[in-house]
């Protein structure tokens, strides 16, 4: 286990960490930075609960080796609320009742942000496709879909 210094931008701030580059980004975020908002549902890239933004793209952080984020920008769920106030996607999730157990919510919300960055006016099918890598066992996805469509409406107001 050879450690390296890795420099990247985490939630808008330049950070530097001395770590095994093979460690997953998810474990780096959770264990080294204490950012436990990203969840581990499978550790194999199948559930999407660990979704973060890597240079604005939604990725399963459990599949990204820490060494690969060198020089990149990583955004996690913790960065969304400003001054303790949830952002418009988070608010939409609550408004639409899109949250039950909540374990998938951070990953879903990050996938929603990635979608809205690329496509600020998605239709229902585009929303469903964007979150098709994020599993939810509680909600049946309907209220999540509605929440993301509502987020898009707010964005375009």
């Amino acid at each position: 286990m050879k450690k390296e210094i890795i420099k990247f931008i985490l939630n808008g701030e330049q950070v530097e960490v001395y770590v095994d580059p093979a460690k997953s980004l998810l474990h780096l975020l959770r264990n080294d930075f204490g950012l436990t908002g990203s969840k581990e549902g499978c550790g194999q890239g199948e559930c999407g609960a660990c979704t973060v933004l890597l240079d604005d793209l939604a990725v399963n952080s459990c599949l990204i080796p820490a060494g690969k984020v060198s020089g990149c920008s990583v955004v996690t769920i913790e960065a969304l609320s400003r001054d303790g106030k949830p952002d418009f996607v988070q608010e939409s999730f609550v408004e639409k009742g899109a949250v039950q157990c909540g374990f998938c919510s951070p990953g879903m919300i990050m996938s929603a942000h990635a979608l809205l960055k690329q496509n600020p006016r998605p239709d229902a099918m585009e929303v469903r496709t964007a979150i098709s890598g994020n599993l939810c066992r509680c909600t049946g996805y309907k209220q999540i879909e509605e929440a993301i469509l509502l987020s898009a409406e707010k964005l375009n107001k």
Binding site: G37, T76, P86, Q90, V94, K96, G97, P106, I109, E146
Partner: peptide, 25 residues
Amino acid sequence: ITREKKTETDFQSPEVWTKVTGKAV
């Protein structure tokens, strides 16, 4: 489920805010 107005029977535990912000433990 898009409804204009919330009904008096629509309520969620404030814990929901901890879930969407990643703060729920």
